[in-house]
Design a protein around this nucleic acid. Sequence first.
DNA 1: CATGAATGAGCTTTCATTCAT
DNA 2: TATGAATGAAAGCTCATTCAT
Lengths: 215, 215, 215, 215
Amino acid sequence: MSELRVKRDPEGTRRRILEAAAEQFTKFGLAGARVDAIATVAGTNERMLYYYFTSKEGLYVAVLEAMYAQFAEREGSLDLSGLQPSDAIRKLAQSIWTHLRDNPQWLNLVNNENLHEGRYLERSSRLRETISPVVDLLRAILERGASEGQFRPGIDPLDFYVTLVGMGYYVVSNRFTLEAFTGRNYAEQRNHESISRLHVDMLLSYLRPDSRTMD
Amino acid sequence: MSELRVKRDPEGTRRRILEAAAEQFTKFGLAGARVDAIATVAGTNERMLYYYFTSKEGLYVAVLEAMYAQFAEREGSLDLSGLQPSDAIRKLAQSIWTHLRDNPQWLNLVNNENLHEGRYLERSSRLRETISPVVDLLRAILERGASEGQFRPGIDPLDFYVTLVGMGYYVVSNRFTLEAFTGRNYAEQRNHESISRLHVDMLLSYLRPDSRTMD
Amino acid sequence: MSELRVKRDPEGTRRRILEAAAEQFTKFGLAGARVDAIATVAGTNERMLYYYFTSKEGLYVAVLEAMYAQFAEREGSLDLSGLQPSDAIRKLAQSIWTHLRDNPQWLNLVNNENLHEGRYLERSSRLRETISPVVDLLRAILERGASEGQFRPGIDPLDFYVTLVGMGYYVVSNRFTLEAFTGRNYAEQRNHESISRLHVDMLLSYLRPDSRTMD
Amino acid sequence: MSELRVKRDPEGTRRRILEAAAEQFTKFGLAGARVDAIATVAGTNERMLYYYFTSKEGLYVAVLEAMYAQFAEREGSLDLSGLQPSDAIRKLAQSIWTHLRDNPQWLNLVNNENLHEGRYLERSSRLRETISPVVDLLRAILERGASEGQFRPGIDPLDFYVTLVGMGYYVVSNRFTLEAFTGRNYAEQRNHESISRLHVDMLLSYLRPDSRTMD
DNA sequence: CATGAATGAGCTTTCATTCAT
DNA sequence: TATGAATGAAAGCTCATTCAT
């Protein structure tokens, strides 16, 4: 917006619309966002929005795809080679949680998508593969840990991954209602670190081979 | 709707509006819900909605209050006396998770409230006390477990509670996006039980006094 | 409103509604006034308003009648006996102008009635006689002045009366737009007195028998 | 309305809306006028009204400005050069009164604005200068008349102007209530001429230098 | 590629009024 | 006599979208 405007700049216009839409959809949801506001923020007019994305919903799907792509790229570039299994888990968790904490708008979009029962996600093509690399990575770590006798065997990597992500997701996504009820703001550095320590502890306690005897 | 309609029934009208609003707000969010649809579902006309709740937002706040009250009532009535500490944790977790899984609309409302950064929750009065009874209960269990040498000492009950709730919350709230990416539907009995088992295991592993040496 | 409320007080209720209606109609006009606001100000409910006055328009007509009656009563009680013709004119004018200045809301009502082309005034019965006593009074003064050689003869008392009233009416009724354009506020004592002096001068100059030669 | 419609005609659309609004606001006042009716009369839809004028009130202010501008233009083009002072007064008065009589809707708008205590007039910018040219003109006439010994000296031109305008304003603006009470219709040619003669006589009688001795 | 003008449907809200007790 | 509950119509305004240039 504040950047220098070129007269005919198709790619730039498209990109600015997408960025503005991302901002508005994450702030207000699909129903709450205004086409008019998106155009204004993008520094163009409503017509262009339809020119490039066909409809409000089309634009919403485009934003969804872009954000998932961005998220996947970030997770895919994680290098855990040469680490002890427990350290690898630690680093993986911290990486994901930090990313979530630093991109809370992203969570709004995901929540919105769940409100719509995933309808728009289905509409998009390239997806499923988005998540698998990280789960594969995790599977490898768990297997290595088990074979080395450090982790308990037989853990489902997908459930474990979902649990790990959920720990970071919940405290960020629900930071406002949580603060209202607990008086504790989990977006604050101190509180976030403190509960993250708890979460790492919990994950690693669970992975210990002897802990299994308890249940 | 299908219930017998009495001609003059202020309490009934009010209640039906509230129920219809709860349904619509949880389905579509504050912005997405239509006043007109709420009135129709409630079997009355739009005017009554303003008669009883002043505005759409006023109605939203009323729904929010009602749902939180309902949630608190349910959690408050939990009886864990006479149970071993670890069994008490198990029962508490199962109770909360079951409740969450059976009331997914409730989570939509909470997510919506987080989208609004908790603005409407602030507007309501009676709150904070809603959560404390359960946390007090949990604190007592943790202390008893620690004094009996079964749990590690020094655990923050609030962080532990948030973690516990979050485990159940995340898989239910995000069931649609999770299914899109993992192919696994956590609303299904089998998957829900399986990951719940993982979560209980994890909580109890963490609580074991010797697990602490690991980190 | 602030007076002591009796439980069953038909006359009081009716009177309070009428007073509240007068206030609201003069402030906002017929279209702008709100039935709901009238009831609130009157300290009763909307239903009573319909009980006593049938409709909003019925109430408006009642207010109109009441205010005209009040105005007529005031003018009718004027005693000009024993005064020199020119002094009688002076006193008559001052009396009317002061009354207008002190009851600007009344003018709003009259303007409103003119906006409606006098439709509601027609609906009322006892009227025409309202004005005649003052005009009769004025006619008598003019005739006496003429027969005594102080006033020019042949003046139409009705036109003269209309002119006289209009002088006071215009500066009060249009005080806001006049101030916006002239910067002079004719509701202020000083300005009102100054222009009133001009008006009296003008009326009396015109009445002088020799002034007629000029035209 | 009945004119030929061009498909894309921004200026025309804007103008037609303004004209329709002027008609409706003068007929029914700000509160009484209907946005829907304005759009229909303008031969467009309600949306365009907001497109060009932001809100109903915005449109009202635009109408106000347009009508004042029109009024000012008309008065500004008056040529009184080469006339005897008394004839100049006569011509000025006749010009203003005729204009008022021929544009009674304009008076409705002014009355409406006074009902609103001039709130919307304030909102507008260019104003004060609207009236001054005519007052300057009048001041010059009065001074010339005084220096030539035809008029009494020391007359305040602003008060004199207000009085002059008021004479024409009152009988037109209040023609309906006046007819209800006096039975005389001042919009009719005969009656209007008759009272106008009285008014001119009165103004000139007052201006005569010797009339001043009377008071 | 870009944009101002135009549209109709639908939104939340308010209105005057009537019903039932 | 008094009042809370109920209503339908319509108000002002906003929405996503399309047309014409």
